[in-house]
Amino acid sequence: MHIAEGFLPPVHAAAWTVAAAPFVIHGGRSVVRQVRDHPETKLLLGASGAFTFVLSAIKLPSVTGSSSHPTGTGLGAVLFRPPVMAFLGTVVLLFQALLLAHGGITTLGANAFSMAIVGPWVGYAAYRVVGRLGGGISLSVFFAMALADLSTYCVTSMQLALAFPDPSSGIVGAASKFLSIFAVTQIPLAIAEGLLGVLVFRVLRDVAAPELIRLGVLPDPTPDPPHRAPSGTPTETTEA
């Protein structure tokens, strides 16, 4: 989903940068507030950022014969809500743009919009919807991870279609062309990422249950504690 450096016309590059900037700035403030107000969740925050950092470095082969990397932004979106990932995801993209010539500074806004903003929000929405439907926490995490990954690549396809419409079939034709490159390859990889996300979440549930309860990801076992944290997402989901 990395649009290469210089491969968005200047107007598009500027527009996506302007669109992404408020989310990333707000995300940066969310990270600072999270660390200041809930220092006990710092290790989980580090784990979420590191997870994205690892996954976006690894290109996996897909049955379509091309390869692509997962995004890993769904986990942090579930644990800390999407704004935090807007910041952490952009840091990862910046690292890759500067050191690996993967993505770019001019396309950072567009890439951040797909991987660090839309992906986490779609993943978080999927997590809430599946939880509301009674899917259980593992299934919710699976869909959060898989759809955060897949939606990122769909947004990239749309961004490229807007910038490079097909001469005959226009934006729609170009979109289907780019979707056939990105999205189709990504489907099996998104499923693999969903499974990996569940794996990591199960480890975190073992070692960080109190922190996850504090974040509202796991239900609070005590019925009415004196200091209930209003933080995070209320979950009606219970483990299936």
């Binding site: 989903m1 290469a4 200047p10 091309s66 010539a101 001019t106 390859t185």
Partner: peptide, 29 residues
């Protein structure tokens, strides 16, 4: 197993031969 990122870039170059990337990476391995 060509990366999808570079596959998309080649697709752009094929369909829009006139497009010149207007900025290049500050550092590229």
């Amino acid at each position: 197993f060509v990366g999808t990122d570079s596959a998309a870039t080649s697709q752009i170059e094929r369909d829009n031969p006139d497009y010149e990337p207007w900025f290049s990476s500050i550092y590229a391995p």
